[in-house]
Write a protein that binds this DNA or RNA. Structure first.
Lengths: 341, 341
DNA sequence: ATCATCCTTGCATTCGAAGTCATTTTCTAT
DNA sequence: ATAGAAAATGACTTCGAATGCAAGGATGAT
């Protein structure tokens, strides 16, 4: 009869009113009880917490978000998760944000430039901020600005107005690699670039090319795609372009370096590093595998993600704060994939 | 003077009331305008859409979630994102859910068993469902059930009551691998397991061990950790345990297989597959690299994620639906890391 | 005992959109 | 032109928690 006592669809969905009734207090008291530093008498708090436990009450973050205008959500927008470098970044970011009481709304793009489609959803969810590892147009950045949603770019920089960003220094990294290669007495240089729409790809290639020219060396550049197979494909192209004389290869990331190393050894019977030196960029874990030990630049992922999260939270809490660009030097990892000076 | 016209803090944060005022209609009309199949006169809709565009209006998903009791959020709980297999799964899941108009709340665990800490947050955000690739206790599963939040486990099964799940068949996969190895005339078998708290790890090892025994073969088992270095470490242990006679190695995943292959070749000078056959599990991309070409079982990730998403959505839309376990057969990928029969 | 002060507590309102219901407008058929 | 049906629209309430405000209670000083 009195089935109303325990409506099954209700279990686990208790509201602050239910808890209030159970504890014999007002809804306000319940709300205060879950808020840090609010004024509640110890005895009342006890009663409320007991009632909350009994009813399995958890504050509705959606309702909280509506009234406080703080969703406690941060959007993470990442282009290609399969890039081997990003999973580590994503895990780090997520755990750091979690530790700060912030939840992650994940947007994964099929292509670096599919951002527009997800922005719509980003606005709808009233995220407090965003960390973006994808290419944003100036208008898209302006949209964030208009809405007062702080953004931190990861390994990207804004093309127009200044935006906060965290980057690993491509220039110093590539300079270090090129310098080492040049000292190692190489003669025919090749570069494998990233895909055309990749910011870091272009930046790294440009830096390497420039340094080579500064040192009076010429080079051939072929386009890669940041993945393993494109390392192989690009190596074939370069071998053709250099009549097989290629002896130093600079790859825009480790994955292509690995592809090229395998291809050189297996498809061309070339010894690495005796006949061909190969260097990469990123410091992903396969780069350290025994078979490769790629000479590369390791990005300081922990420090970079830490900075990204800190910068974002600062800007969420102090909306006026001006943008900040932080550049982190990578560490030269001397493997055995290159003869160095 | 009339600065009220454009309150800066307001831009991009227009509400349905603002749009209504601008268009000279009621808030209800605006709401209906954004709802599929509601009754709005074409001319009114025009006016409203124009106003919305002008004010940069996007419906507040938080408010929608509160009133409709549908957050359109799904929690994805993944233990170790760095596992090389999961990034692909995560990207697939995210994109498929996005395509269905569902947003992903990501929870990444440092250890497979840290689930409790995140569940709290899962309840608070009133997610419509969850996809979990981590170990859940029966009580945790019961909590989902109590709250009416559908769950689909990914490569895990419920330990107590039935739960929906999507798995790649470890048993048939390992049987196929073992059968092939046995036919390939191997004599001393070793197995590298996963970490103790990994469900699939235990399942795969148990299946392999059972099959070996069925075929009258003995084997040594050492514990691994699913990562590259533990493949090396475990191989050393096995070489010691077998006096260097090991000639067939079954690894609970590809990453350890790769670690073992590298270690065998480089640390022990053993030829793979001539002197030692190595098989893995998963079909991650490095397994197909020229240097390894691991003989393994490839999980049908696309079909599995598709099923997981479909099953979850079904259960969100029809809360009564009973749990369903779907098992997918992996595909035997015949590489060159093992002599087969 | 008396009053000022601080701490607790509840009432009422608010956030932004959805949906019910009643009302008005438009359309259809005669 | 007109009754009747159908479509379009608006007023109002609702979801669940936070918070300003005012009232009540406890505490301390005199």
């Amino acid at each position: 009869m009195a089935a109303k006592k325990q409506p099954e669809a209700n279990s686990g969905r208790a509201t602050s009113y239910d808890v209030a009734r159970q504890a014999g207090v007002s809804q306000s008291a319940v709300s205060r009880c879950f808020k840090q530093g609010a004024s509640v008498a110890p005895r009342t708090r006890e009663k409320i917490l007991a009632a909350a436990r009994e009813l399995n009450y958890y504050p509705n973050a959606i309702a909280q978000g509506l009234i406080t205008r703080r969703s406690n959500l941060v959007a993470i927008i990442i282009s290609n998760l399969t890039n081997l470098y990003y999973p580590e970044v994503l895990a780090e970011l997520t755990q750091r944000l979690s530790a700060q009481g912030i939840r992650v709304l994940l947007f994964s793009l099929a292509a670096e430039s599919d951002v527009d489609e997800v922005l719509d959803q980003v606005w709808r969810y009233r995220v407090d901020g965003a960390i973006v590892a994808a290419r944003l147009h100036p208008e898209q950045l302006a949209a964030f600005d208009d809405r007062g949603v702080p953004v931190v770019l990861y390994n990207r920089v804004g093309e127009g107005d200044p935006v906060s960003s965290v980057c690993c220094d491509s220039v110093s990294g590539e300079y270090a690699l090129v310098d080492a290669l040049v000292e190692g007495d190489h003669h025919v240089f090749g570069i494998i670039s990233g895909p055309a729409d990749s910011y870091v790809g272009e930046e790294r290639v440009e830096a390497a090319r420039r340094r080579l020219h500064q040192l009076g060396r010429d080079c051939q550049i072929v386009r890669g795609n940041f993945d393993y197979v494109s390392g192989d494909a690009a190596l074939r192209d370069l071998m053709r372009l250099t009549d097989g004389k290629l002896d130093a290869l600079i790859c825009a990331n480790d994955l292509m370096a690995i592809g090229a190393i395998d291809s050189a050894r297996i498809n061309f019977g070339i010894e690495v590093p005796q006949d061909l030196s190969v260097v990469g960029f990123d410091g992903v874990s396969p780069a350290t595998w025994l078979a490769y030990q790629v000479t590369t630049i390791r990005q300081p992922v922990r420090r970079m993600t830490e900075a990204a999260v800190a910068m974002l939270i600062e800007r969420i809490e102090q909306p006026g704060l001006s943008p900040e660009q932080r550049l982190f030097a990578g560490e030269l990892l001397t493997g055995s994939s290159a003869r160095l000076g």
